[in-house]
Amino acid sequence: MVSYLWIKRVLDVIFAFVLLIVTSLIMLGAAIVIKLESKGPVLFKQERPGRMGVIFTICKFRTMRVETEKDGEPLSDMERMTRIGKILRKLSVDELPQLFNILKGEMSFIGPRPLLVQYLPLYTPEQMRRHEVTPGISGWAQVNGRNGVDWETRFEYDLWYVEHVSLRVDLMIFLRTLAIVVMRRGVNQAEGVTMEEFTVAEERTFRV
């Protein structure tokens, strides 16, 4: 696996560089419309744990309004989502800034999605194994339900990838990802825009 991970890193750098050139005009257009539609930064930045739990800053195009409440009431993700944000998510254009994370070695094209830093204390030792590989833009969990699967299943998919990482598996995930983007399915959960929060209650269930 070690030899393949080295080859994978080389391929990540090559394809990320090429895609940055190919999608440069798309990214420029996305940045302009985001800025015109709502106030706030073009990019959404957030700390996430990478390989071996090392913290890095992930970058995505902002798809939500910066306001978190209206008339004193908290706004849901659906209410905060901008019109252009919905389009960017459906087409996965919001993920393009992560190409810079790939060039820096913080992410890969394929791997378990990097989750929130505050989830780290909630993981079981087995679940922590998801950090044995570099996190990715797309992974085994994403092509098997994306945000529509529950946390337990998602972690099972992530661990399966860690144990089976190979060129064949990465190519399979890549092709399935393209199909999902084209068909625009599985972007959001049925009852919300983003994956529901991972809680202590869920973590205790996994320990049983």
Rank of each mutant, 00 (worst) to 15 (best):
V2R: 13
V2Q: 13
S3L: 12
I7Q: 10
V10Y: 08
D12F: 00
D12N: 14
V13C: 04
F15C: 12
A16D: 02
F17C: 14
L20Y: 01
S24A: 14
L25I: 15
L25F: 10
I26Q: 06
I26Y: 00
L28W: 12
L28S: 06
G29M: 13
A30R: 02
A31T: 01
I32Q: 13
V33W: 14
L36T: 00
E37W: 13
E37N: 04
G40T: 01
V42Q: 07
L43A: 06
L43R: 06
F44T: 05
K45P: 01
K45L: 07
E47C: 10
G50W: 13
M52F: 14
V54E: 08
V54D: 01
C59V: 15
R62P: 07
K70I: 07
K70T: 12
K70M: 10
K70N: 10
D71Y: 02
M78E: 15
M78T: 14
E79I: 06
E79S: 09
T82Q: 06
R83A: 09
R83F: 06
I84A: 11
I84M: 14
K86E: 11
K86D: 07
I87L: 15
K90S: 11
L91Q: 03
P97W: 07
F100T: 14
L103F: 08
E106V: 05
S108A: 12
F109K: 09
P112H: 09
R113V: 06
L116E: 07
V117W: 12
V117T: 14
Y123A: 07
Y123C: 03
T124E: 11
E126H: 08
Q127T: 00
R129Y: 01
R129D: 11
R130C: 07
R130H: 04
V133M: 03
T134E: 03
G136L: 05
G139K: 08
A141G: 10
A141K: 11
Q142Y: 15
Q142G: 00
G145H: 11
G148A: 15
G148S: 15
D150P: 05
E152F: 02
E156R: 15
Y157D: 04
Y157T: 03
L159Y: 08
V162M: 07
V165G: 02
R168F: 11
M172C: 09
F174R: 04
L175N: 02
L178D: 05
I180Q: 06
I180C: 05
R184P: 02
A190M: 10
E191Y: 01
G192E: 11
V193P: 11
T194K: 14
F198S: 02
V200I: 13
E202F: 02
E203T: 11
T205F: 02
